[in-house]
Amino acid sequence: MLKQKIVSITTSLVMLSGLALSSQSYASPPYSPDLVTPSDRWKLTLYWDRSATHDQIPFVQPYLCFKDLGADDEQEAYKWEALPANLGSGTSTQEGDQIVTNGKLFGFNFDMQWEIYTRDEGAGHIRAWHPNNPSNGFTLNITMKRDAKKCK
């Protein structure tokens, strides 16, 4: 019995040391810049990618408020709520400067892939579709700009 316990404890220690070593063997969070420092509030602006002039979609510039959920292996995990909150919500992951954001906004499901270029600006693409008609989606360019104000 005692021998079994010693073997079990030794095995656990070996596994723990292996985990500790592997956690240092690749890039891992925290990443900087991130989505919450110095402010957690970002303004989303949308542009028709199919337009020859990339026309901006007027009157649609929601704020997204991010909350850091901590590291998940190589990624930093977040959840977000739109401002005002009833516009939508979802999740985000960050790996390096690359962000994947998805959820529901204005009644549309969406998947958004973007990158932080300056400390407070990012850009990328969004694919959005209505839940009742998923085959009839659309692709837009997007910019994200960190707001000086923080979310409450």
Binding site: T45, Y47, T53, H54, D55, Q56, E115, Y117, E121, G122, A123, N141, I142, T143
Partner: peptide, 17 residues
Amino acid sequence: WEIVTEDRPNTKAMGYG
């Protein structure tokens, strides 16, 4: 880089890369 934002004479299009 990639051209991202609206591109009209008065909008000063922006790109990132």
